[in-house]
């Protein structure tokens, strides 16, 4: 073996030995650069309206996964049907990874307004979790539009608005049990007791002996 060949081999071997004593490269999830993140934050594609969420709940859409990012106390007081509670500060915990990793669910994050859910969305997105949604306006909007919908003012009610209002009235009946005549919202349904069982996504097929 020539001297330079020996030198290269020795160098690689030395590197290999040094490598044993070094730590693993941990976060494997790709991290989205600030530029792309900013671009996506401005795109608003992440928002889903309260009407759409209400429709999915009423249709019992099996792919819907509602995640309440508020504190457990708030969650206990009131939440949406079937929602699970992952407080915003715990959203990146390993135990919650499966919810966001799947292609199966339409994940909808919500809080009282939009900002806490937006923050959670941003943290998820920066770690390359795609397809998560934020319920626009949060529970406040939910109350305003679904639990206590107001008839649009004036006679100039367009067909579209009327349709939307009728839908909301129907949704109101569904969620509050209010009679169609008694306009105002009744007491909201109590939060489901305990954490609803959410089926974890099946583990993907892994290769060979994996």
């Amino acid at each position: 073996m020539k001297r330079r060949e020996f030198l290269i081999m020795a160098l690689l071997l030395l590197g290999g030995i040094i490598a044993i004593f070094m730590s693993d490269i941990k976060p494997l999830k790709h991290i989205i650069g600030p530029k792309q993140l900013l671009h996506e934050v401005n795109k608003k594609g992440r928002y889903i309206s309260t009407d759409e969420v209400a429709k999915m709940i009423m249709e019992k859409d099996p792919t819907l996964l509602l995640i309440d990012v508020r504190s457990p106390e708030e969650y206990k007081k009131y939440t949406l049907d079937g929602a699970i509670n992952i407080p915003a500060e715990k959203i990146m915990d390993d135990s919650n990874k499966d919810y966001f990793d799947s292609d199966v669910y339409t994940v909808v994050l919500f809080s009282n307004g939009s900002s806490l859910a937006d923050q959670s969305w941003l943290r998820l997105r920066s770690y390359d979790y795609k397809g998560n949604k934020v319920m626009k306006g949060g529970l406040n909007e939910w109350y305003r539009t679904i639990l206590n919908p107001q008839k649009p003012a004036g006679d100039a009610m367009s067909g579209k608005m009327e349709k939307q209002f009728l839908f909301r009235k129907g949704a109101q009946v569904y969620f509050t049990g209010a009679t169609p005549v008694a306009g105002g919202a009744k007491k909201a349904k109590p939060a489901p007791t305990g954490k609803p069982i959410v089926k974890r996504k099946k583990k993907e097929v892994t290769g060979g002996c994996g």
Binding site: K2, R4, E5, I8, M9, L11
Partner: peptide, 8 residues
Amino acid sequence: MNPYVAGF
């Protein structure tokens, strides 16, 4: 070129 040098 020497293959090890080229590889390096």
